[in-house]
């Protein structure tokens, strides 16, 4: 079997059947379209979609709309569900870093947009994730104007604590957590930002107000509630931990009951 696989590799040819979700706009109904594509093992998943689009354009058809930009796993643009999994089968990997060697010749691959009421479809695989921006705008920052800062070393931060804050801050805002969650909950995204800022001494000043405002905004955007299924953590391309959700719960409860702040 290995020999067979090696042989295919050297040919660099995989024949794939794609079932791609096509939807003209949020107002239109969508449906799956089937396409055959030839790909090489070394292509990224998005390069394979480029091949499909080149083919569609050569047939004077409308190419599949999908979001992508940095293609190195950090901008968080790519947003598609591949065979039922946001960003596809490889753990801790964005779609743009997923390579075709994760698939086999003859595979049928279903490609769908992230689905959630708070992420309405714009076109094909493109969805509107501006709800995330509004959550950050509601309090995901430290209120400090440019020029007000004290010397960077005047605030010592324990290495582990800084590391924990960093782990939460690696969130790329892609929305895979929402897409993966059966409840379309944005708890992992929101809690990652709450954790990043509330863990640090600089962020402690506004910690109570931050968590109240951000959770309030998250609810208003129409995301679901957390059932502690942890599919978000499993599908997160940056493998952000659900420990952050527990921290946000804790901070939210204590901010509500233990401070004079309201959302």
């Amino acid at each position: 079997m290995l020999k067979e696989k090696l042989k295919k590799m050297s040919h660099g040819n995989m024949n794939l059947t794609l079932k791609v979700w096509r939807q003209k706009s949020g107002q239109h109904k969508g449906n799956f379209e089937t396409h055959k594509v030839q790909a090489s093992e070394h292509m990224s998943f998005l390069e394979m979609l480029d091949v499909l689009n080149e083919k569609l354009i050569s047939e004077r058809k409308t190419p599949v709309a999908f979001e992508h930009d940095c293609r190195e796993g950090i901008c968080g643009s790519c947003s598609m569900v591949i065979n039922g999994q946001p960003h596809g089968p490889q753990r801790g990997t964005t779609t743009c870093q997923l390579h075709m060697r994760q698939f086999n010749d003859g595979d049928v691959i279903a490609i769908e947009p992230f689905r959630a009421a708070a992420f309405p479809v714009i076109k094909d695989l493109v969805v509107d994730r501006s709800a995330f921006d509004r959550i950050i705008q509601s309090g995901g920052y430290i209120s400090v104007n440019t020029g007000q800062a004290v010397d960077g070393n005047s605030i010592p931060i324990e290495k582990d604590l800084s590391g924990q804050a960093f782990d939460a801050a690696t969130c790329i805002g892609c929305g895979a957590c929402v897409a993966a969650c059966p409840n379309a909950s944005a708890m992992l995204f929101t809690s990652a930002k709450v954790s990043h800022l509330n863990l640090l001494p600089q962020g402690k000043v506004e910690a109570a107000q931050r968590v109240l405002s951000m959770v309030n905004q998250m609810d208003e955007e129409g995301f679901g509630m957390c059932s502690n299924i942890t599919a978000c953590e499993a599908e997160c391309p940056k493998e952000i931990s659900v420990d952050n959700i527990a921290r946000m719960n804790r901070e939210y409860i204590s901010a509500t009951l233990g401070s004079n702040k309201t959302a």
């Binding site: 769908e112 959630a116 409840n183 679901g224």
Partner: peptide, 22 residues
Amino acid sequence: NRKARGGQGYAVQATRATGTNA
């Protein structure tokens, strides 16, 4: 939660091992 999920479900259901009994 059903409302938050939206009307259209995924055509393929797949799960990855998680930290709990998903």
